[in-house]
Simulated scan of single mutants.
Amino acid sequence: MNVGIFGANGRMGRVLIEALQENDSSELTLATVRSDSAWVGMNVGELAGIGKLPVSCVGVDAADAASVEVMIDFTLPAAFEDNLAWCVANQKPMVIGTTGLSDAQLSALNEAATQIPIVFAANYSVGVNVMLALVRQAARALGQTADIEITEAHHRFKQDAPSGTALAIGQSIADELGRDLKECAVFGREGKEPPRDHKTIGFATVRGGDIVGEHTALFADIGERLEVTHKASSRLTFARGAVRAANWLKDKAPGLYSMSDVIGLENMQ
């Protein structure tokens, strides 16, 4: 499987280079950066710190669509629409891990999925996707009486808050309980407030140091509480999941797929 990366010079882009190099079922054949980037011409292996490889970074405007079968995008929302349009124009399947997308960008993603196959997930860790299934089960059993809070922690450089994964956890719980997350989410508390509304879902965010990613869903009832937690210690976890999704996309029909589809978690929902 010939795979390309948008934003190869980014934090996740570099880890994706490493993940593709260690994967026997795929090969990195295209690595793009901004057309005006100083990274144009840089060898991808040297960029990722794993030794020289037979691919160098090219500007998006010079990308050779014929060299790839699928593209992976973990860039920023500012670059997302151009990357999506490139894949649609060239009929290339796409794995998307960009978070913090606007409603308009999500609408564009859904429209693109009518023309090309897309895997879109807030988190490509297998463990996190198992967690999404587990919190639905917990919500089904405890959600009518327990108070629900979601906490997440990431490195100091992460720009969106709460994280896309935290929102995905909240959405899974809200869906199971028949609630509208936009209506029931609480993203901050300060000062004196009325007693907690049982039907709300709270979010708390921590940013600091080099924390890769930690998420906890808390179901707190009178007399007991359940916590479902996932902790990532390496970005390779996410990159390996994205590469797995890229390989899974081969020969798929146009449509919007999730990591649940990729790893077959339907029976856990």
Score class of each variant (00 low, 15 high):
residue 173 I to W: 03
residue 95 V to A: 06
residue 135 V to A: 05
residue 100 G to S: 05
residue 136 R to D: 11
residue 22 E to Q: 12
residue 213 G to Q: 11
residue 126 V to K: 15
residue 199 K to I: 13
residue 194 P to D: 15
residue 229 T to N: 10
residue 172 S to C: 15
residue 207 R to W: 03
residue 238 F to V: 12
residue 139 A to W: 03
residue 242 A to G: 12
residue 140 R to P: 05
residue 248 W to P: 11
residue 187 F to A: 03
residue 48 A to H: 02
residue 117 P to Q: 02
residue 263 I to Q: 14
residue 43 N to E: 02
residue 99 T to L: 01
residue 126 V to I: 13
residue 253 A to Y: 04
residue 212 V to C: 07
residue 166 A to M: 08
residue 26 S to C: 10
residue 78 A to V: 07
residue 254 P to N: 06
residue 113 A to W: 05
residue 139 A to F: 07
residue 207 R to F: 03
residue 230 H to T: 10
residue 101 L to D: 04
residue 49 G to M: 06
residue 178 G to M: 10
residue 101 L to G: 12
residue 229 T to A: 06
residue 190 E to L: 14
residue 230 H to W: 07
residue 179 R to D: 05
residue 130 V to S: 08
residue 76 L to Y: 05
residue 163 S to C: 06
residue 16 L to V: 09
residue 33 V to Y: 04
residue 167 L to P: 00
residue 1 M to P: 13
residue 220 A to H: 10
residue 79 A to D: 13
residue 262 V to D: 03
residue 171 Q to E: 07
residue 100 G to I: 00
residue 141 A to Q: 11
residue 101 L to W: 00
residue 136 R to G: 15
residue 21 Q to R: 09
residue 214 E to M: 11
residue 45 G to S: 00
residue 255 G to A: 04
residue 182 K to R: 14
residue 106 L to E: 14
residue 2 N to I: 01
residue 118 I to L: 03
residue 38 A to D: 07
residue 149 E to Y: 11
residue 50 I to N: 06
residue 240 R to H: 02
residue 208 G to H: 06
residue 158 K to P: 00
